[in-house]
Simulated assay, not measured.
Amino acid sequence: MVTENHENAAPARVPGPRIASIMFNAKDAAGLAQFWSELLGLPVVAEHEGFIWLRASAPGQPQLAFQQVGAPTEGRRRLHLDIHDDDPSALKVRAEGLGAVFVEGQDIGDFHWDVMQDPEGNEFCIAQD
C-alpha cells in the first residue's frame, strides 16, 4: 500500500471570507513589527507606506500587520481584523445586513478596503482576496 505524506502540502483554500491579517495600530510600526518578528521568529515579508506585514506562521493562517498612526489610539481600534473575500462588495452588504456599519473606504495604489464597525463598534476591514 502506498501512503502519501501531506504534512508539507498547502491546505486547499476554502471559498468564502477569511481572516487575512490581524492589524495593529502603532505609533512606531517598525519597532512594534520588529518586536513581534523577533518574538515569534516571523520575518517581515512586505512594507508599503506605513504598513508592515510579517510572514504568516503557517500557510492559510492570518498575518500580523502593523499600521503607522500619528497618535495613540483612543476610542478607535488599536487592533482589528482584515477580512478578505473573493467578493468584498457582497461581504460588505452581508455584514451591513447583520448590523455592521460602513465607516470609510481606503486605498493604497490599486488596493481598496472598506473600514467597518460591528454592532458593538469594533472595527474591521473588508478587502478583495
Score class of each variant (00 low, 15 high):
Val2Ala: 13
Glu7Arg: 14
Ala9Phe: 06
Ala12Gly: 04
Ala12Met: 07
Val14Met: 08
Pro15Thr: 05
Gly16Lys: 12
Gly16Thr: 07
Ile19Phe: 13
Ala20Thr: 15
Met23Ala: 10
Gly31Met: 05
Leu32Ala: 09
Gln34Arg: 15
Gln34Met: 07
Phe35Asp: 01
Phe35Thr: 04
Trp36Ile: 02
Glu38Ala: 06
Leu42Lys: 00
Pro43Ile: 06
Val45Gln: 06
Val45Pro: 00
Ala46Leu: 13
Glu49Ser: 11
Ile52Leu: 09
Trp53Asp: 11
Leu54Gln: 02
Ala56Val: 04
Ala58Lys: 15
Gln61Asn: 08
Leu64Ala: 10
Leu64Gln: 04
Phe66Ile: 03
Gln68Pro: 05
Gln68Ile: 04
Glu74Ser: 14
Arg76Phe: 13
Arg77Leu: 03
Arg77Trp: 14
Arg78Ser: 14
Arg78Met: 08
Leu79Glu: 02
Leu79Ala: 10
Leu81Gly: 12
Ile83Lys: 06
Pro88Leu: 04
Ala90Gln: 14
Leu91Glu: 13
Val93Trp: 00
Ala95Trp: 02
Glu96Asn: 08
Gly97Leu: 08
Leu98Thr: 01
Gly99Gln: 03
Gly99Met: 07
Ala100Ile: 05
Ala100Pro: 07
Val101Trp: 00
Val103Leu: 06
Val103Asp: 09
Glu104Arg: 14
Glu104Asn: 10
Gly105Asp: 09
Gln106Val: 11
Ile108Ser: 01
Asp110Thr: 15
Phe111Ile: 13
His112Pro: 07
His112Gln: 10
Asp114Phe: 02
Asp114Gly: 04
Gln117Glu: 15
Pro119Gly: 03
Pro119His: 04
Glu120Arg: 12
Gly121Trp: 08
Phe124Asn: 04
Cys125Ser: 07
Gln128Asp: 09
Asp129Met: 12
